[in-house]
C-alpha cells in the first residue's frame, strides 16, 4: 500500500480501514485498524480544501478530473493545484487512508 505511486491518472477512494467524520466544520479521519497513520492515536485533520478533495475521491474520478474541477472552482495556477492534490493524496496513501484503484 505504501509503495503505490500516485499520479494524475490515479483513481482513489477512502480506505475501509478508516472512518471519516465531520465535527464542527472539522474533517477528521480516524483509523479503524492498527497501522494507519504515524501513531496509535493518530487522527488526521484536514482543512477545507482537503475536505472537498476527500469527498470527491469516489473511486471513479481520476485525480486529473478532480484537478479540472478545482481549476474551475478555485483561483490558482493549475500546476500549483496539481501539486497540492498530489501531495495530499500521496501522504494519505502512505498513511493507508486512501486506496488507489488504478
Amino acid at each position: 500500500m505504501n509503495g503505490v505511486k500516485v499520479d494524475l491518472n490515479s483513481i482513489c477512494g477512502l480506505s475501509e480501514n478508516i472512518v471519516a467524520r465531520e465535527i464542527e466544520d472539522e474533517f477528521i479521519i480516524i483509523p479503524l485498524v492498527s497501522g494507519i497513520g504515524n501513531a496509535e492515536d493518530d487522527i488526521f485533520s484536514l482543512n477545507e480544501t482537503g475536505k472537498v478533495l476527500c469527498k470527491r475521491l469516489d473511486g471513479k474520478k481520476t485525480l486529473f478530473d478532480i484537478v479540472d474541477e478545482f481549476c474551475e472552482e478555485y483561483e490558482g495556477e493549475r500546476k500549483e493545484i496539481e501539486s497540492d492534490v498530489l501531495d495530499l493524496v500521496s501522504e494519505m496513501v502512505k498513511r493507508g487512508m486512501l486506496i488507489v484503484f488504478g
Binding site: 480516524i30 483509523p31 492498527s34 496509535e40 492515536d41 487522527i43
Partner: peptide, 8 residues
Amino acid sequence: LAVYPPLE
C-alpha cells in the same frame, strides 16, 4: 484489540 485498537 490489536487489530482494532481503542485509540486511547
